[in-house]
Structures are given as C-alpha cells and as structure tokens.
C-alpha cells in the first residue's frame, strides 16, 4: 500500500466517516472517566494540596500543544515532498486544535501558578516557550488566511511550518538558557517528587481523551476543508463554462 493509497479523497471521506463517530464517542467516555479520576479519585498532593489537580488538564494540554505542532510539521513535510493532496489539509486542520491546546496550557499554567508562585505569571522557561509556540501557531494560521490561492497558501504555510519546526528546539534551548541566567528568586519547582501511580492514571486517561478529541476534530475539519475545496472547484467550473 503506497503513501498515495489514502490520497484518494473519496476513500478518505469514507474512512473518516467510519472512524469519526467512534473517535467522538471515545472522547466523551475518556473525558468523563478522566475528569472523575482527576477531580474525585486522585488524592491531593501533600505539598501542593488540591491545586495539583490542575496538572491533570495542564500537562496533557501542554503535551497536545507539542504533539499538534509535530503533527503539523510532519504533515507539511509530506505535503511539500510527496505532494500528498490531503497532507496540507491535515496540516491546516490541525492548527486551530493545536492553538487551542496551547492557549489552554498557558491559561491553566497561569491559574496553577497563582497559588504556587503567588503570581499569575512568571517568566518560567516552560511557560515562556509555550507562549512562543502559541505565536508560531498564530502566524501559521494567519499566513493561511492571508494568501488567497489555496494551493499557494498551502505550500507557503508548509514552508513556514518546517522553518518553525527547526526553530522550536532552538527557541526551547535559548529560553531554557535565558531562564537559568535569570532564575527568579523563589520558584517552587512544579516537578515535585516522582509521580505516584494514583496520579499517573488520571493523567494518562486525560491525555488519551485529548488525543481522541484531536482525532475527531481533525477528521471533521479535514472533511470540511475537502468539501470547501470541491465547492470552490465547482464554482470555478461554472464560471468558465
């Protein structure tokens, strides 16, 4: 089976139609279980008290922020190198999802920081690099919006995504370096002791729920983009015939 097997939009639509309801259902179930475990079952941390529960949404959201960007970059590479017709749609569809998770990671991190650090925001290395990642997402989406020709926009956005992907580790490294130079006076480390299994399970379930959510929305958004592309092609044909 070649990489172009799923390139056929009709085949993709059929497959997506079959997967999407299951992914949606899985999202709901996992989210309910995850929330129950995170809010009720998981014990409060002996140091951070109940605030540790914020971790169960903050950490998976931060993971998803990174995961979506990786997905976006890989899809962009596939679009540029193999000219896979669905790849740039996948990249475009994943961007708002990634941006939302990045936003959530920032907000929940900030809410967690208030009781921990006594302030809503510290220029901690992790929050700072997530903030920059958020800007990268915004730039990517803005570039898609700004170029009218869909094919050109896709290629330009793909180039940007790859340039960004090369830069993410550099930015991360530079921000870490900067942070060690300007270590804030009193910062409670968030890592704490090695994580206990009673906390690991809700964390994993929430992470899985977010993944399933990503798959569901990705498929729906890709199908929408495909439909829009078809509509545009039909309208163009009407104009010229």
């Amino acid at each position: 089976m070649s990489i172009h097997y799923f390139a056929n939009p009709a085949r993709f639509t059929r497959l997506a139609g079959r997967i999407q309801p299951w992914a949606g259902g899985l999202t709901a179930v996992l989210l309910l279980i995850g929330l129950y475990m995170a809010l009720v079952e998981a014990p409060a941390d002996y140091q951070q008290g109940d605030t540790v529960r914020i971790m169960f949404v903050h950490v998976p959201a931060a993971w998803m922020a990174m995961f979506c960007y990786t997905f976006l970059a890989v899809a962009s590479a596939v679009a540029l190198i193999w000219r896979h017709p669905l790849a740039d749609l996948a990249a475009k569809a994943s961007a708002p999802i990634g941006a939302s998770f990045t936003f959530l990671a920032l907000v929940t991190g900030s809410i967690w920081g208030k009781p921990m650090w006594g302030t809503w925001w510290v220029w901690d290395a992790r929050l700072t690099s997530v903030l920059i990642l958020f800007f990268l997402y915004l730039g990517y989406m803005a570039l898609w919006e700004a170029i009218e020709d869909g094919q050109k926009a896709g290629k330009a956005a793909a180039v940007l995504a790859l340039v960004g992907a090369v830069n993410v580790p550099i930015i991360k490294f530079s921000v870490d370096w900067w942070n060690t130079l300007h270590q804030p006076a009193s910062v409670l480390r968030m890592d704490g002791p090695a994580i206990h299994s009673s906390m690991l399970w809700p964390l994993l379930i929430m992470a899985l729920a977010f993944k399933a959510y990503f798959v569901t929305l990705l498929l729906a958004r890709m199908r929408m983009e495909l439909n829009l592309r078809r509509i545009r092609a039909m309208r163009l044909a009407e104009r010229t015939s």
């Binding site: 920059i132 800007f135 990268l136 915004l138 730039g139 803005a142 570039l143 700004a146 170029i147 020709d149 050109k152 330009a156 180039v159 940007l160 340039v163 960004g164 830069n167 550099i170 930015i171 490294f173 530079s174 921000v175 370096w177 900067w178």
Partner: peptide, 30 residues
C-alpha cells in the same frame, strides 16, 4: 524567509512581523 512568504500578501507588513518575531527570539536572547 518571512519577507518571501508574505510576498503575495497585500499589506503583508503586520503578518511579516507576526511570522518573524518569534523566530528572532534566540538571537535576542544570546
């Protein structure tokens, strides 16, 4: 890179800064 990407965008200046400034951060830091 940013200048080339925003070439076909009308009034691409603001977009250009959105694309380029995050990439400038390591240079600024070091």
């Amino acid at each position: 890179i940013g200048a080339a990407l925003t070439l076909t965008v009308r009034r691409g200046g603001v977009l250009l800064s959105l694309l380029v400034l995050p990439l400038y951060i390591p240079v600024l830091i070091f």
